[in-house]
Amino acid sequence: MSIFFSKNSIAWYFILPVLAVHFMVVALPSLLSLALCLTDWNGFGKINYVGFENFYELFDDRYFKKAVWHNIIWTCLFLTVPIALALTCAYLLTGITKGQMLFRLCFFFPYMLASIISCQIWKYIFHPLYGLPAWLNSKGIDLIPAVSPFTMKETSLYAVAFVDGWHFWGFLVVIYITGMYQVDNSLYEAADIEGATKFQKFRFVTLPLIRPIFIFSIMIIIIWSIPTFDYVWILTQGGPAYSSEVLATNLYSQAFDRFNVGYSSAIGTLMFIYTIFIVSIFGVLRKLGWEI
């Protein structure tokens, strides 16, 4: 009897409602979705088992391969540009005493905007008739052609990544700056005595000591890059000509435009396996003693 009222058990009682809800709305649908990848279900009628047919078809699908490649580019972009910018800005901001909060607020503000608003802002900025380049052109300043980068196949993916990065990087600034404030000031004083430059202090003091936060940010970027959807969907819907198609838009289109729910579940399954793989890598690194 006492086992039901032990300290450990009581903790479980508190968690139980959340676990039940999580099971019903996340775990169970996910498991069902995994099962659907082996069927030809169209979202309405009979479910027929088709084995691995969806996967064979998937590996032969040129637009799926294109979407995979775009997700890789997306991940690489987000692992470099926003991180580099955020680290630099966070480090510079730690040296500012007056007005630092204002900068932090400015950088973080786009993160608080709904994705639809961010996207509309940038769509209007690059609008070919009423946008900034068109206005500059009308004033005789032909710096940028009045063509929306979201509508050109050469630039669409990068343009969408830019808008998403613009909204996201302020979040990184905030978490990095929080990490930097945890660094013991005496270490910087010691470095000063040794005659270290600002860059050397960043390289040999700051960076090693914020490593857990830094690695955490890399992990979330890799994981969040897999299901990226909203910015792509709002700005380009994966176009033009699949030039900004990513896995999530491909999955959505298969499920809701083409009624290929089984096929889209196969895409979802691969995304799931990839996520598990990434999380496992970080788990292994943790076991090896990395401070993550």
């Binding site: 690059f126 609008h127 070919p128 008739l129 063509v147 929306s148 979201f150 509508t151 050109m152 176009g239 033009p240």
Partner: peptide, 17 residues
Amino acid sequence: GSLENYYALGWDDFHAM
């Protein structure tokens, strides 16, 4: 005027045009 403009214009834009 161009494929890119066609991709960039929406309901209000082309009615205004």
